[in-house]
Amino acid sequence: MPLRVLVVDDDQFARTAISAALAGQGFDVRSTAAGVVETMDVDLTGIDVAVLDLDLGEGPNGIDLAHALRRRQPNVGIVILTSFSDTRLLASSVRDLPPNSSYVVKQSMSDIGILVEAVKATGTQEADPATIPKVPLTDAQIETLRLVAYGLSNSEIARVRVVSKKSVEQTIKRATIALGIEVSDEFNQRVSLARAFFSLTGATRHTHANR
């Protein structure tokens, strides 16, 4: 019997495209939902795997939803399908994924096979939590980068994070090295950092680093 799948994505186009792709791979796409409210109305008894977008707009995110679904249906497999290379990029307070979950980054999904494998693995309780990626940045570096990308100055960042300005400068320097961004006169360092940040969230593919 094909695995029965629920697809949750707040973008209608993505939702339909993913559903069509999965159906084309022989899965039984039982339901689709645009957000948390709709998802919690779905009858989970017939669902083997839930494919969730990480960023569902305002309110709970895909991981919050995953925990809620697991509480209602302990065996349901969870696949987070997202453009974020690391869950920490979404927000500062993101929980860990529940066990038996897969995390698929859209940009690294060279073909549909990767999503198919992830759905199969969670559907048969064999997901390997080690596949959940982490970018080579510390929590503090990610938070600082987020504020840089928001357009805050170093002293504003220092105020928000309640650290010294010198500490912010240090963190930015380490993040720059960790991301492999070359400091040159050609590109403004803050813009490069912001672009790198958005590149990791999937907002753009084109960064200084891969030009």
Partner: peptide
């Protein structure tokens, strides 16, 4: 219309992010 608008808004966001730098798109 809905699909076209969805594609178009995706396109313009991608374009804005690429052409003007990510900060602009974010703004």
């Amino acid at each position: 219309r809905e699909v076209a608008e969805s594609l178009h808004s995706l396109q313009s966001r991608v374009y804005a992010a690429r052409a003007q730098g990510s900060e602009q798109a974010f703004l």
